[in-house]
């Protein structure tokens, strides 16, 4: 069953076709990587899937709902309820502690629950660092807090934008291991990356070029 489906999606900025008649689908529980060089339309696609932008043409079905025509207020609700976001530059609220940063996500979603937030930090191995401010955490630790924040509300889809772009190899592996765990638990993952190693960790890779899907690669070594 597909969780996400893009049908003939185009995004046009004046003369530029950032996305040109793209068709993709992602099944429930699938782990998909989106690859492509700069300017290939990765970010535009990420914005549209992340409910932060609307396509010029086409349909975007998320969990059976067409989000391509929704108001931005409605998109905010959908994003909050169904999507967990992870960013390249981590983006933590710099005056809140690790656990408070996780709780911010709960706060906008439903109810802040410190215990649950601490458990989520425990899952990413940062239970002891819960009371630290972002400035007191390493980049890898910050990204793990962001993973905890993304999964705290049990989203249907985790959307990660270059999640390992600013991390060293050790931390990259930790984050990928976390993704693997989430995948095992049935969470759908879409990871936008230009790093082939990160892409290879996924079940399937969609390669974008010039705003079009150039090819799709099934990772035969997945899980091995």
């Amino acid at each position: 069953m597909s969780l996400l489906e893009l049908k003939n999606v185009s995004k046009i900025y004046g003369e530029l076709k950032a996305l040109d008649n793209v068709n993709i689908h992602v099944d429930q529980g699938e782990w998909v990587a989106i690859m492509g060089p700069s300017g290939s339309g990765k970010s535009t696609m990420m914005n549209i899937i992340g409910c932060m932008d609307k396509p010029t043409k086409g349909e975007v079905l998320l969990d059976g709902v067409d989000i391509s025509k929704e108001s931005s207020k409605r998109l905010t609700d959908i994003r909050r309820d169904k999507i967990g976001l992870i960013f390249q530059q981590f983006h933590m609220v710099n005056y809140l502690t690790a656990v408070e940063n996780v709780m911010v996500s709960q706060y906008y979603h439903s109810m802040p629950d410190e215990q649950e937030a601490l458990e989520a930090l425990g899952r990413v191995g940062l239970r002891e660092r819960a009371r630290h401010l972002p400035s007191q955490l390493s980049g890898g630790e910050q990204q793990r807090v962001c993973v905890a924040r993304a999964l705290i509300n049990h989203p249907e889809l985790i959307l990660a934008d270059e999640p390992t772009g600013n991390l060293d190899e050790a931390n990259e592996n930790i984050v990928l291991d976390l993704f693997a765990q989430l995948h095992k638990e049935g969470t759908t993952l879409i990871v936008v990356t230009h790093d082939p190693e990160v892409a290879e960790a996924a079940q399937r890779t969609i390669v974008l070029e010039h705003g079009k899907v150039a090819r799709e690669v099934i990772n035969e070594n997945f899980g091995k």
Binding site: T76, D77, R79, R80, H91, M92, V104, S105, Y108
Partner: peptide, 16 residues
């Protein structure tokens, strides 16, 4: 700006 953007990305409504 980024913090505000982040809050919105995390699902903060305009009223929040």
């Amino acid at each position: 700006r980024r913090e505000i953007g982040l809050r919105k990305a995390l699902g903060a409504s305009d009223n929040s």
